[in-house]
């Protein structure tokens, strides 16, 4: 097994709130591993510490405690950035640059140059469907277009790990389907992806493994299969159903060709239900003195 794309161990991130000794614990004792080639989804309510975790992965923030390694390199070391691409939440790029110029700029930052870079820029514009807008300035781009140029920018140097912070925020359904396809494409190419999103169906669709984070702590983690029931099953949740009614349903199922009753008993759950379940406590965050 190769080194994991991301290995976070006991990460704690504390922000000083004001000059009076008050702190905000944004992330607490968080451990997670994104395997090489894996798509990892981090979900959690607003303010649960998802973006903070991602910034630590990218070295934009240093861990207060714990470690974070990207392909074995400490995330604070600029070396680890060779292998990473990042799309921040609500990105906004230099509005005076055109789409092509933007990609070229980020490519140069990664040390790319010459015809190879030019080729890569064309390829990326094609990939995110912005070839027609390549010479328009980003000031005139729509939110969806910005998100896509952001995605293209993140993968410009063909990184082995792509970190996406809410890649579909503010994007219409068809646009977000495109982004989903791109993520699936990355996965197919063997790129590891770490993403967070509020759109659980999408997370459900693309992620191999999912972590649910709440108030800075990992509350549940596992493969989608572990977290939710199988897709080909349908649950009927009945309340106060009489024995007679249940017997009637059984007979109906028997009449249906190919259908069989697998279980009868306490219901399994969907990702959404797990999510809501795990993050229900709306208790205020622990503010330590």
């Amino acid at each position: 097994m190769s080194t994991p794309a991301v290995k976070i161990e006991n990460l704690t991130k504390i922000f000083p709130l004001s000059l009076r000794k008050r702190y905000l614990v944004a992330v607490e004792q968080l451990s997670l591993t994104v395997g090489d080639g894996e798509v990892y989804g981090l979900i959690g309510p607003n303010g649960s510490g998802k973006s903070t975790t991602m910034k630590v992965v990218l070295g934009l923030m240093a861990p207060t405690k714990g470690t974070c390694r990207v392909f074995g390199n400490d995330s604070r070391d600029v070396v680890s950035r060779n292998q990473v691409g990042f799309l921040p939440e609500n990105p906004y790029f230099y509005k005076y640059l055109t789409g092509a110029e933007t990609l070229k700029f980020y490519g140069k930052l990664c040390g790319m140059k010459g015809p190879a870079l030019k080729e890569r820029v064309d390829e990326l514009l094609e990939m995110v469907d912005l070839t027609g807008a390549r010479d328009r300035r980003l000031g005139g781009y729509s939110k969806g277009m910005l998100q896509r140029i952001g995605l293209a920018q993140a993968v410009v140097q063909r990184p082995r790990l792509v970190v996406l912070d809410e890649p579909t925020a503010g994007v219409d359904p068809s646009g977000s389907r495109k982004i989903r396809d791109l993520v699936l494409q990355l996965k197919k190419d063997g790129t590891s992806v770490m993403l967070c999103s509020h759109l659980l169906e999408q997370v459900q669709e693309v992620c191999d493994r999912i972590g649910i984070i709440h108030q800075g702590r990992m509350v549940k983690e596992g493969s989608l299969k572990e977290l939710i029931a199988l897709e080909d099953q349908t649950e009927i949740v009945l309340k106060n159903g009489s024995e007679a009614l249940i017997e009637k349903i059984r007979s109906l199922i028997r009449e249906e060709q190919g259908a069989e009753l697998v279980t009868l008993g306490h219901p399994r759950t969907t990702l959404e239900r797990v999510f809501l379940e795990e993050t229900r406590q709306d208790a205020p965050k622990p503010a330590k003195d």
Binding site: L58, R81, G85, F86, F93, L109
Partner: peptide
């Protein structure tokens, strides 16, 4: 910082 271009730049291998 406001445009988050700082994030995208510093998340590239840029010292």
């Amino acid at each position: 910082l406001e445009d988050r271009t700082l994030y995208t730049i510093l998340s590239k291998p840029v010292p």
